[in-house]
Design a protein around this nucleic acid. Structure first.
Lengths: 336, 336
DNA sequence: CTGAAAGCGCTAACAG
DNA sequence: CTGTTAGCGCTTTCAG
């Protein structure tokens, strides 16, 4: 077991050139073809692999970018991750994924790693609108793009979907389908996505006038996870006058909602169910599920493109890109 | 926007000590309490964050470990990833995730990154039994653990499940339930998991004697993804004498299988369906799905524990840990 | 317990 | 086009 490392010096000696020349060969500097060839041969013969750590130290920048997401078990984020990867694919940058688990401590740790490892850039779906602190990265000039969720006070590029509009369209659809006691199960307080989707729900209800229900009696905050959705739905079902439809602010919670409904023998569209974000493998569900479709892949792709531009030093002003959602009507909201 | 970096020297000067002392404070060396305190204060005041790249270069080892998985969209692997993270959580090591996308080129790239970044260790669910080349890592003394899938010629610790046994138990269950034309949709040739699960299927059939069907007429190799499962099932359904049950070698392909069945108006248990690995959110499926349950989380956890031991320099001989699977009988295999 | 000094492997001026 | 040189920021002997 050889632990010995082959360095640029070893290659240089073997090829009869200077270390600088070897470096040039590996970095596209001007070198005569024959010299370049002999360097490559020497490198291959010795099994040379460049030390990226040394390179990063010298260049003050590594060639990896971090993607920090709050829930690796949510297909929405894994799809987003695919978008990021595919965009980075065509560059020399590698993407590493970090799962913050909706935990601001874990997230902070990863943010520190990204900073300390001098990563070329960071894409982050923030665990919290308030606590996620991007300032150290920004202070050091590391390009950062916020995706899906937007940390409050951060001066960063951002890519999101039209949460409020999507929530409004969804709720209006429910109203038009004839539902009258429409509930909303949204995410944690303080998450931009939670608040905006809820705002859309309220707007639709208010503008419907007399159809507007009793304040927030039908509003629940949960945790964007299956269990949270299930618990919130159980609560709503236990109300003296349970809702006849529910707008659920994310895919995972919708699964919990459907489970809770099944427990008590109710099924859509008797109780209308509309999910913000497609449930994975929804094709297997009967009745099929009406959902606000989110361009998860494109979200990642767009964020990565933006980041790559910043890394290349493009100086355009900060921008926020908003991607459209689209309501896909199916059976679960056919009417009470 | 300050791009200026605060180094250990700045802190040293501010605290009136030498850089070495600052380093000791941050690495648990012997320093008098009062000096340590003033160093910490100075560091805080200056907003010092240690440069992990410089540290890695000096120590010849970084403090991150890589987890390389072949499909980030498969809940089996994301659950495994959670296991790895939770195990690493209690150490000072950070986990970064790399998605090889079942592509040996992408995988090679990540393996190179892990080597070049001098990562402390690597856990890999190999994209290929033959092409995945762990030798460079091993030659440099980087601890490596193979998880779920085992690269052929590699001298590494490994953690897997009892694929063959699980496949055998599954197939026997189908036989006992009264199915007679049992098909098997397995993964790509050359993946250890594909081959072993298939071997279990064959063993069960052969030992059933006269129940054994015509050779491999009912065997299909697909790609471990939804589409592959769907296509394979369509093929099987088009046979002059279609199977009356199918053993599917992974969760994602099972989704495709169920879809294909629905297309032609068949449903389990009329056609028996048994999945190797739980389908995500199976609770929503009716009829409920019989599956071989895999300890995905524990797989990750165990692999990480093993890796951490190696990183700490534990010299025990190479080991392979095999975790048990468990057949969970539900409605989809109730009998033809 | 503390400081000085010597690099880890690489790249980027700067001469030649 | 090529070699020499000087570090990037940190840890770790080695003296004191």
């Amino acid at each position: 077991m050889r632990t010995q490392v082959v360095t640029i010096h070893d290659v240089a000696r073997a090829a009869g050139v200077s270390p600088a020349t070897v470096s040039r060969v590996f970095n596209g500097g001007r070198v005569t073809p024959e010299r370049a060839l002999s360097v490559q041969q020497a490198a291959a013969a010795l099994g040379f692999a460049p030390n990226r750590v040394a390179r990063s130290l010298r260049k003050q920048r590594s060639s990896v970018i971090a993607l920090i997401i709050p829930d690796i078990e949510n297909p929405f984020f894994t799809s987003l991750a695919r978008g990021v990867e595919d965009a980075a694919q065509r560059t020399s940058l590698s993407v590493v994924l970090c799962n913050s688990d909706e935990d601001t401590d874990k997230e902070r740790r990863y943010l520190e790693v990204a900073l300390g490892e001098q990563m070329a850039g960071v894409i982050v779906a923030a665990a919290s609108q308030d606590e996620t602190d991007l300032a150290p990265l920004i202070a050091r000039g590391v390009p950062v793009v916020a995706v899906d969720r937007r940390p409050h006070a951060a001066e960063v590029d951002a890519v999101q979907v039209d949460n409020q509009h999507g929530g409004e369209v969804a709720t209006r659809h429910l109203l038009r389908a004839g539902y009258r006691r429409i509930a909303c199960i949204t995410g944690p307080r303080g998450a931009s996505t939670s608040e905006e989707r809820l705002a859309g729900y309220r707007t639709a209800l208010y503008s419907a006038g007399d159809a507007a229900p009793a304040g927030d009696a039908y509003v629940r905050h949960a945790d964007f996870r299956v269990e949270g959705g299930r618990a919130a739905m159980r609560e709503l079902l236990a109300l003296p006058e349970p809702p006849d439809a529910v707008f659920v602010a994310n895919n995972l919670m919708t699964i919990g909602v459907l489970d809770a409904l099944r427990e008590v023998g109710r099924t859509p569209p008797g109780v209308g169910v509309l999910s913000f974000g497609d449930v994975p493998w929804a094709s297997l569900l009967r009745p099929s599920l009406t959902a606000v479709e989110l361009p998860s892949y494109e979200l990642g792709r767009t964020a990565a493109d933006l980041l790559l531009q910043r890394i290349e030093g493009k100086p355009s002003p900060l921008q926020t890109v908003v991607l459209r959602t689209r309501l896909q009507v199916r059976e679960s909201t056919a009417g009470p």
